Amino acid sequence: MRTLFLLNPTAGKADCTRTLPQQINVAAARAGLAPEEYTIQVTNHAGHARELANAAAQQARQSGEELRVFTAGGDGTFNEALTGIYGYANAAVGCLPFGSGNDFLRTFGTKEEFLDLDAQLAGGPVSIDLMQTSLGLSATICAAGLDAQVAYGIPKFRRIPLCGGEMAYVLSIVEQLCGHIGRRVEYTIDGETLDVDCLMCAICNGRTYGGGFCAAPEAQPDDGWLDVYIIRKVSRVTIAKLLGMYKSGKHFQNGQLVRAAEPYFIYRRAKQVSLRAADGRGPIVATADGECAPKEQITVQVQPLAGRILLPKPALERFAAQRTAQSADRT
């Protein structure tokens, strides 16, 4: 087995390359890895993690080896590596959370578990669904509307001292609420067409985005379904009331919207979703795993069990236990 560590020095507020390589060397020795069995590389431009992961996956396949890729960065770095190994059954990607948001891991465990190098090296791979979107491959959530507009404003707030991922997200929301909000959008959800005056929508494989906002509290990343949440256009006062519910995931419980959320949310489970602006005001801004772009039309389709990820040992054991329990329930 080959192990590759990809370190992004620009992710988050601190350069992980200053101390992490030595920590990796110590953990690798404790795990019994010989120096020739693992490699540490530093990314130096956008897309570099994808290139390095893809090259390593090709080489490992040619030599008949399994490949583990651990990305030290944020969700964007993880997504790049996941895209790089896409289609390689011999490779899997894990996340060392050194970014600002680190939303991917929240579906599976805690940041502390994913920062534990011993637990990471003692863990293993699982298969999850992926989403093929108009912005590329995604493991978590593709959002459009106010969410994506907010994402444009996050970088400038992150430069403020002590303003991390969640706080930067909140401040960017406040800024957007001071401008024009809401769009009329046409949705096609597994053949059903909806014309909605909406604030935003989230098409979810994972549970959180935006530094911890729990859009899909019961999403299962390996069930072959997308959880779709559309938030109707509402007043600014109502947005403020909804924000706490949406952030904590209290809008959805036991497989359905809670009563307080029903007037404001539309919920569907789907295999494929597409949406386009129906108000003549130009493209809609969309975001997927940190990537943002204006699009005339956004399409998202589930790719069942198309991704292989690495989980640290505690998260791996919980994931396996949950799958076993769900299988028993179905029988």
Rank of each mutant, 00 (worst) to 15 (best):
Lys156Asp: 10
Phe157Arg: 05
Arg159Glu: 15
Ile160Asn: 00
Pro161Gln: 08
Cys163Ala: 06
Gly164His: 13
Gly164Val: 00
Gly165Asp: 02
Glu166Tyr: 15
Met167Thr: 12
Ala168Cys: 07
Ala168Lys: 02
Tyr169Val: 01
Tyr169Asp: 02
Val174Met: 13
Cys178Ser: 13
Gly179Arg: 15
His180Trp: 04
Ile181Asn: 11
Gly182Ile: 07
Val185Gln: 09
Thr188Val: 15
Thr188Glu: 15
Ile189Trp: 06
Ile189Tyr: 10
Glu192Arg: 12
Glu192Ala: 13
Leu194Gln: 07
Asp197Gly: 03
Asp197Gln: 07
Cys198Phe: 03
Cys198Pro: 00
Cys198Asn: 10
Leu199Ser: 11
Cys204Pro: 05
Cys204Glu: 10
Gly206Ile: 08
Gly210Ser: 11
Gly212Pro: 10
Cys214Met: 13
Cys214Glu: 06
Ala215Gln: 01
Ala216Glu: 02
Glu218Arg: 04
Ala219Thr: 09
Ala219Pro: 10
Ala219Lys: 08
Pro221Glu: 07
Pro221Ala: 13
Gly224Val: 14
Gly224Ser: 08
Trp225Tyr: 09
Trp225Glu: 14
Leu226Met: 04
Val228Tyr: 02
Tyr229Pro: 08
Tyr229Glu: 00
Ile230Lys: 03
Ile231Thr: 14
Arg232Ser: 14
Ser235Val: 03
Val237Cys: 05
Lys241Val: 11
Gly244Ala: 11
